[in-house]
Computed example of a mutant assay.
Amino acid sequence: MKALISIDYTYDFVADDGKLTTGEAGQAIETALTDHTKSFIEANDYVVFAIDAHDPTDDFHPENNLFPPHNVIGTNGRDLYGSLQEIYKEHQTQANVYWIDKRHYSAFSGTDLDIRLRERGITELYLTGVCTDICVLHTAVDAYNLGYQLFIYEDAVASFDPIGHDWALKHFQTALGAEIIKG
């Protein structure tokens, strides 16, 4: 069984005026990312939207010292970007579509993601989203450590750091045994 994990493809991470935007790099993957998402939904495979949920007044959260406030709870910065928002709205009540609020880079850290995947017998994870070298990377490392087989859609991940993006793609393959799926 397989699942698609859509990581942080939100207004704040992708729009030109987003608070921590990947800009053109993130915008360039919209069509591929939404196509992969629709394909999983239509096949009745599990689709997880793993989305940052931050409180800038949380003095204990380490990201608040590293990055400007982004994906703040209660703001439109957490809305999915572009056509992905419409896909989510259309399918959000389906049993195979799930939204996870995450506090940390990894979609597994402090969430029930692993439990939900194991309940469904899922062993293969297909990753999309931003940032390749931060949240996608940390999710992939945790998934690897939990024994999942990894697939990364190269045409559906992006970062604001091109060098970090390229490094992460290589790391997925060489250190995590992930299959990089070319677009």
Results as ranks from 00 to 15, higher is better:
residue 78 R to P: 00
residue 165 H to S: 14
residue 135 C to A: 15
residue 102 K to H: 05
residue 154 E to M: 12
residue 154 E to Q: 15
residue 59 D to T: 14
residue 43 A to S: 14
residue 76 N to C: 03
residue 97 V to S: 13
residue 82 G to C: 02
residue 55 D to S: 15
residue 34 T to I: 11
residue 12 D to H: 02
residue 182 K to P: 01
residue 72 V to M: 08
residue 73 I to Y: 12
residue 138 H to F: 14
residue 127 L to I: 13
residue 143 A to I: 12
residue 148 Y to D: 09
residue 169 L to V: 13
residue 134 I to G: 08
residue 82 G to H: 02
residue 28 A to S: 15
residue 57 T to D: 10
residue 20 L to T: 03
residue 128 T to Q: 03
residue 93 T to M: 12
residue 54 H to P: 15
residue 9 Y to R: 00
residue 33 L to M: 04
residue 41 I to M: 06
residue 54 H to N: 12
residue 132 T to Y: 02
residue 64 N to E: 07
residue 103 R to V: 05
residue 11 Y to T: 01
residue 4 L to A: 14
residue 166 D to K: 12
residue 172 F to L: 14
residue 24 E to K: 13
residue 178 A to T: 15
residue 139 T to M: 09
residue 82 G to S: 10
residue 56 P to S: 11
residue 9 Y to C: 00
residue 176 L to A: 11
residue 59 D to I: 15
residue 5 I to A: 08
residue 11 Y to S: 03
residue 168 A to K: 10
residue 156 A to C: 08
residue 165 H to L: 03
residue 102 K to T: 03
residue 35 D to G: 10
residue 12 D to S: 09
residue 6 S to A: 08
residue 104 H to P: 02
residue 9 Y to V: 02
residue 79 D to W: 08
residue 102 K to N: 01
residue 8 D to A: 01
residue 31 T to K: 09
residue 9 Y to N: 00
residue 35 D to P: 09
residue 61 H to A: 04
residue 107 A to I: 12
residue 133 D to V: 05
residue 172 F to M: 12
residue 13 F to R: 03
residue 105 Y to G: 10
residue 140 A to C: 06
residue 73 I to F: 12
residue 124 E to S: 10
residue 98 Y to R: 12
residue 91 H to F: 10
residue 98 Y to Q: 14
residue 47 V to P: 05
residue 105 Y to M: 03
residue 12 D to A: 06
residue 30 E to D: 07
residue 48 V to C: 15
residue 13 F to C: 00
residue 47 V to T: 10
residue 104 H to K: 06
residue 71 N to H: 02
residue 154 E to T: 13
residue 155 D to L: 07
residue 92 Q to R: 12
residue 5 I to W: 10
residue 85 Q to T: 04
residue 161 D to R: 01
residue 111 T to I: 05
residue 141 V to R: 04
residue 67 F to K: 13
residue 35 D to N: 15
residue 107 A to T: 08
residue 134 I to Y: 06
residue 23 G to F: 10
residue 159 S to P: 04
residue 175 A to C: 13
residue 166 D to R: 15
residue 79 D to Y: 00
residue 58 D to R: 10
residue 59 D to R: 12
residue 13 F to D: 00
residue 39 S to W: 02
residue 31 T to I: 07
residue 13 F to M: 04
residue 134 I to S: 11
residue 150 L to G: 14
residue 131 C to F: 15
residue 177 G to H: 11
